[in-house]
Structures are given as structure tokens and as C-alpha cells.
């Protein structure tokens, strides 16, 4: 698929689009967003003292209701996605595994994201190190928030679920730890989310991310530059990277 952007003669750009995300991946991503954001907002209302008036009385009941109903969807999403696209799920999880190129990414991330210097960046797979960290935090906090949340929900004694009564009495000490761990996981997840949001909507080099998440495709030029190992394959990406490094070194006279 080729799109021609019209402008002055000099600015005509040809973009070749290549597929990146399946429909279900994108639906899953946006449903995750649509549940994560209300969960974070309603949770923060209980957490941040200045929002106290919103947490009080009937408003507080409503906030807690939204938090729990949304939590059910949030918790089920990855499981549903696994059922719908199990092979793709495993494939993506494999892509999230860290390797030694990730160290190079972390070292160069500062100049890469703030200055836009790409040459020293080791070739990245379908997900770069930052996306891997985001994925890791989201996976870990999904488990931690889910487990601690369920224990807080059902650990205060039996709760009626339809005709059944489900729940148990957890020791108060354990409950207190659950609250603490839930909060710490929330802080990690929300901090990661903020960085993710910034890169998606505000960073000039990362413009392709939102396009990919909406239309499922990414620019070939963008993929070659930011996800070389995925675009060229590991061997060619490595060779190109070494060549670029040599060239960069000779240019700066080193």
C-alpha cells in the first residue's frame, strides 16, 4: 500500500505501509486503555487526599462501583485475547523477552529520545526495549493488581454473587499488605502509562505508533529505522548497524 502525501514538489513523501498489528490486537489494546484509564482515575480518587470530596458518600459508592465493574473487564481482557489469538499471543510474549541489545538501547535512549540521534542505537525487534519495559510492567501489574484486588474484594468475608456467597476472611495484616502492594503496583503502572501516552501522542519521532494502533500498519521507513531486526531480520540488521556505527565513527574522526 502506497500513500502519496501532497505538498510542494520538494516535500512529496512516499510511504510504504506494512502490517504490524492484527485487528484483535488493536481492539485488545484500546479496550485495555478504555478500562485502565477509568480504573486509574477511580483508584486515584480513593488514593489522593485532595480528591476526598469525590470519594465521600454516594459519590464514593459510585466511584467504587465503576472501579469494580471495570476491573472485571480489565482482568478478563488478556485471557479473552489469549483464547482468540493464542499463537499470536505467544509470539508477542516471545518478542517481549529481553536480550543484550536492550542494554545498548537503555544506554542510548537519552540521546535517542531527546536529541533524535539514531546511529548508535542497536537494532530492535518488533518491540523495542521501551515497549518491552512497558509490556513487562503492564503484565506484572495486571497480575499483581488482579490478585491483590480480588483478595481485597473477597477477603473481608463472604460476598453474595447471585445465589452464591463467595469469599473468605483474610487476616487483617495480610489485607493491609494487599492494600500497600496494590498501591505500589498502581504507581508503577500509572507512571509507565504516562510515559507510554507521552511517546504515543507527543514525541515527534514516534508518530507511527498511533497510526499502527489505529490502522494496524506502520511505515516501512519507520520500521527499518526503529525496528530493524523485525524489518530486515536479525543478520542483516546487525550488519547494517555495524556499518552505520563504523561510518558514524569515521565521520566524527574517531
Amino acid at each position: 500500500m502506497t500513500v502519496r502525501l501532497k505538498g510542494t514538489e520538494r516535500d512529496v513523501v512516499t510511504i510504504r505501509w506494512i502490517p504490524k498489528y492484527t485487528v484483535m490486537e488493536r481492539v485488545g489494546h484500546w479496550l485495555h486503555t478504555a478500562t485502565f484509564v477509568p480504573l486509574a482515575v477511580t483508584g486515584l480518587i480513593l488514593y489522593v487526599p485532595p480528591f476526598q470530596s469525590l470519594a465521600q458518600g454516594q459519590a464514593g459508592h459510585f466511584i467504587r462501583l465503576v472501579h469494580r465493574v471495570t476491573a472485571i473487564v480489565f482482568g478478563l481482557l488478556p485471557i479473552l485475547y489469549f483464547i482468540i489469538e493464542p499463537r499470536r499471543f505467544v509470539l508477542s510474549i516471545r518478542e517481549f523477552i529481553f536480550d543484550k541489545d536492550d542494554i545498548g538501547w537503555v544506554i542510548n535512549a537519552f540521546s535517542y529520545y531527546l536529541m533524535g540521534r539514531h546511529t548508535a542505537m542497536p537494532p530492535q525487534g518488533r518491540f523495542n526495549t521501551g515497549e518491552k519495559m512497558n509490556g513487562l510492567i503492564m503484565c506484572v501489574t495486571w497480575v499483581v493488581l488482579g490478585v491483590t484486588g480480588l483478595l481485597m474484594w473477597f477477603g473481608k468475608g463472604a460476598v453474595p454473587v447471585g445465589p452464591l456467597r463467595i469469599g473468605f476472611v483474610m487476616s487483617a495484616g495480610l489485607f493491609q499488605w494487599m492494600v500497600l502492594i496494590h498501591d505500589v503496583a498502581m504507581i508503577a503502572a500509572v507512571a509507565m502509562f504516562l510515559v507510554h501516552l507521552y511517546l504515543a501522542v507527543a514525541h515527534p519521532l514516534m508518530w507511527a505508533g498511533l497510526v499502527s494502533m489505529r490502522f494496524g500498519v506502520t511505515s516501512a521507513a519507520y520500521a527499518a529505522e526503529h525496528h530493524a531486526r523485525w524489518y530486515y531480520g536479525p543478520k542483516r540488521a546487525r550488519r547494517l548497524y555495524e556499518e552505520a556505527k563504523k561510518k558514524g565513527a569515521s565521520e566524527t574522526g574517531q
Binding site: V13, Y113, L114, M115, G116, L194, V195, Y198, A202, H203, P204, L205, W207, S219, A221, Y222, E225
Partner: peptide, 19 residues
Amino acid sequence: GLIAAFFVTRRNIRMEEVE
């Protein structure tokens, strides 16, 4: 940090050069 990064990035990276 992100707000600061936004302004630093804007100064260093010119959109015309972005592919």
C-alpha cells in the same frame, strides 16, 4: 519529566527531518 522532555525534544528534533 515528560513535560521537560517534550520541550527539549522539540528543540532538538525538527519535524521536517523526520521520515
